[in-house]
Amino acid sequence: MVVSADSPQTRLATRLSFLVAGFGIACWAPLVPFAKDRIVVEDGVLGLLLLCLGVGSVIAMIATGALAARYGSKPVILVGGFGLALILPTLAVVNTVPSLGLALVAFGAALGSIDVAMNIHAVEVERAASQPLMSGFHGLFSVGGFLGSSLMTFLLSVGLPPFDATLLCALPMLAAMGLAWPRLLAVVKTEEGPMFAVPHGIVLLLASLAAILFLVEGAILDWGALLIRTENLTPPAQAGIGYMLFSIAMTTGRLLGDKVVARIGDGTTLLGGSLIAISGFALLLLSPFGVAALFGFVMIGLGASNLVPVLFRGAGTQKTMPVGLAVAAITTMGYAGILVGPAGVGFVAHIVGLKTAFWVLAGLVGVVALCAHRATSANGTAYD
Rank of each mutant, 00 (worst) to 15 (best):
K319I: 12
F154M: 14
G148Q: 04
I264A: 01
L53D: 09
D164Y: 09
A68I: 06
L325T: 01
V298F: 15
V261A: 02
S287A: 13
Q318M: 09
F154S: 15
A129P: 01
G148W: 07
G22I: 04
S57P: 06
I59L: 12
P182H: 02
L51F: 15
G341P: 10
V41K: 09
P182M: 11
Y335R: 03
G341Q: 02
V187K: 13
V97N: 05
V143R: 05
A68H: 05
A328D: 09
V158F: 15
A211W: 11
V368A: 10
H138T: 06
I25Q: 10
V79G: 04
G136M: 06
F358E: 00
N379G: 15
E231L: 14
D6P: 10
G253D: 05
N95L: 03
R229S: 07
T166V: 03
T234I: 15
N379V: 12
L370W: 14
G193H: 15
G273F: 13
A66M: 10
A378N: 12
R229T: 13
G240T: 10
A26L: 04
A26E: 01
E231M: 13
L168R: 13
A207T: 10
D384E: 12
K319F: 12
V298Y: 14
V308E: 10
G145W: 14
V327G: 02
A329V: 00
T332D: 09
M333I: 09
P182I: 10
T376H: 05
H350G: 09
A362H: 01
G65M: 12
H350S: 14
M1A: 09
A378E: 11
P172F: 14
G178M: 04
K36F: 01
V32Q: 09
L49G: 01
M1I: 11
F297Y: 08
G24D: 07
A35L: 09
A207H: 11
V368H: 07
L67P: 13
L227T: 02
L133W: 01
G178V: 05
A282E: 04
G218Y: 12
A35S: 06
K36T: 07
H121D: 05
P30M: 03
V203K: 11
A375M: 03
V360R: 00
I228V: 13
G334S: 14
A349M: 08
A210N: 14
E42D: 14
R70E: 06
Q131A: 09
T320P: 14
S377G: 06
P98M: 07
V360D: 00
G272I: 04
V187Q: 08
A249H: 08
P342I: 05
A211I: 13
V365C: 00
V260F: 08
G72V: 03
R127A: 02
A186V: 03
L104G: 08
L171V: 14
A165V: 07
A315W: 14
A293P: 10
A210T: 15
D164Q: 07
W223G: 01
D37L: 15
V308C: 02
L50M: 11
G257P: 01
T14S: 11
I220H: 01
